[in-house]
Amino acid sequence: KEQQNAFYEILHLPNLTEEQRNGFIQSLKDDPSVSKEILAEAKKLNDAQA
């Protein structure tokens, strides 16, 4: 469930490039146990690119 939530949120971050988004999603698939950390990174990058 946590992985699904992170997946959904990353898909809807407006400021990520397609490449960045795909990278985060691939990381989620590779290691779902760190989905919280991956989501935090994605949000940080999204904010930095706002």
Rank of each mutant, 00 (worst) to 15 (best):
K1Q: 14
K1D: 14
K1S: 15
K1F: 04
K1R: 05
E2S: 06
E2G: 09
E2L: 09
E2W: 01
Q3R: 03
Q3W: 13
Q3M: 08
Q3T: 10
Q3V: 09
Q4Y: 06
Q4P: 10
Q4G: 15
Q4R: 05
Q4E: 15
Q4I: 14
Q4D: 13
N5F: 09
N5M: 10
N5L: 06
N5A: 07
N5Y: 09
N5K: 08
N5T: 12
N5V: 05
N5P: 03
A6H: 14
A6L: 13
A6E: 15
A6N: 07
F7R: 06
F7P: 03
F7H: 15
F7G: 09
F7K: 04
F7E: 15
F7L: 14
Y8F: 11
Y8W: 05
Y8A: 13
Y8L: 14
Y8T: 14
Y8G: 10
Y8I: 13
Y8Q: 11
Y8K: 11
E9G: 03
E9D: 06
E9R: 02
E9I: 12
E9F: 07
E9V: 05
E9H: 05
E9N: 02
I10L: 06
I10Q: 02
I10P: 01
I10T: 02
L11E: 15
L11W: 06
L11K: 06
L11S: 14
L11C: 02
L11V: 08
L11T: 11
H12D: 10
H12L: 15
H12G: 15
H12T: 12
H12C: 05
H12A: 13
L13N: 01
L13M: 15
L13G: 00
L13H: 04
L13Y: 09
L13I: 03
P14Y: 08
P14V: 08
P14S: 07
P14R: 11
P14D: 06
P14C: 05
P14A: 15
P14N: 13
N15E: 04
N15F: 12
N15L: 04
N15Y: 14
N15D: 10
N15G: 06
L16I: 10
L16Q: 00
L16K: 00
L16Y: 00
L16A: 00
L16G: 00
L16V: 02
L16E: 00
T17I: 02
T17W: 03
T17H: 04
T17K: 04
T17Q: 04
T17Y: 04
T17V: 02
T17R: 04
E18L: 10
E18D: 10
E18I: 09
E19H: 14
E19Y: 04
E19G: 05
E19P: 09
E19V: 14
E19N: 11
E19F: 09
E19T: 14
E19Q: 14
E19I: 04
Q20T: 02
Q20P: 00
Q20C: 02
Q20E: 04
Q20V: 03
R21Y: 03
R21P: 00
R21V: 06
R21A: 05
R21C: 04
R21I: 08
N22A: 11
N22E: 08
N22D: 15
N22K: 14
N22M: 10
N22H: 10
G23V: 10
G23K: 14
G23Y: 11
G23L: 13
G23R: 09
G23Q: 07
F24I: 03
F24D: 00
F24T: 01
F24C: 02
F24Q: 00
F24R: 00
F24L: 08
F24M: 05
I25V: 12
I25Y: 06
I25F: 10
I25C: 03
I25N: 03
Q26M: 15
Q26I: 08
S27E: 08
S27Q: 03
S27I: 12
L28M: 09
L28F: 05
L28G: 01
L28W: 05
L28T: 03
L28D: 00
L28H: 01
K29N: 11
K29T: 15
K29P: 02
K29W: 13
K29L: 07
K29I: 12
K29R: 08
D30M: 10
D30F: 06
D30N: 09
D30P: 04
D31M: 09
D31A: 09
D31V: 07
D31Y: 15
D31F: 15
D31H: 15
D31N: 12
D31E: 09
P32K: 08
P32Q: 06
P32D: 05
P32L: 12
P32A: 13
S33N: 11
S33A: 10
S33Y: 11
S33F: 12
S33K: 12
S33R: 07
S33V: 05
S33T: 14
S33H: 10
S33W: 06
S33I: 09
S33E: 10
V34K: 06
V34T: 13
V34Y: 13
V34M: 14
V34D: 11
V34F: 12
V34E: 13
V34I: 13
V34A: 15
V34S: 10
S35K: 11
S35E: 15
S35D: 15
S35R: 05
K36Y: 12
K36T: 07
K36N: 12
K36P: 11
K36M: 14
K36V: 11
K36A: 08
K36L: 15
K36H: 12
E37Y: 06
E37A: 08
E37F: 12
I38Q: 02
I38T: 06
I38C: 03
I38R: 03
I38L: 13
I38F: 02
I38M: 04
L39K: 03
L39T: 07
L39V: 14
L39I: 12
L39H: 03
A40Q: 14
A40I: 14
A40Y: 14
A40N: 12
E41M: 09
E41G: 09
E41D: 13
E41Q: 12
E41Y: 09
E41C: 02
E41F: 07
A42S: 03
A42W: 00
A42Y: 00
K43W: 03
K43Q: 04
K43Y: 08
K43T: 06
K43D: 02
K43N: 13
K44L: 15
K44D: 06
K44T: 04
K44W: 11
K44I: 11
K44Y: 08
K44V: 11
L45F: 06
L45M: 07
L45A: 05
L45E: 04
L45S: 03
L45G: 01
L45C: 02
L45H: 03
L45W: 06
L45N: 03
N46A: 07
N46E: 02
N46H: 03
N46R: 02
N46Q: 02
N46T: 01
N46Y: 00
D47M: 11
D47G: 09
D47K: 08
D47C: 07
D47P: 01
A48T: 07
A48E: 08
A48V: 11
A48W: 05
A48D: 10
A48I: 14
Q49L: 11
Q49T: 03
Q49C: 03
Q49I: 05
Q49Y: 15
Q49N: 09
Q49G: 05
A50G: 09
A50N: 11
A50R: 13
A50E: 13
A50F: 05
A50H: 10
A50T: 15
A50K: 10
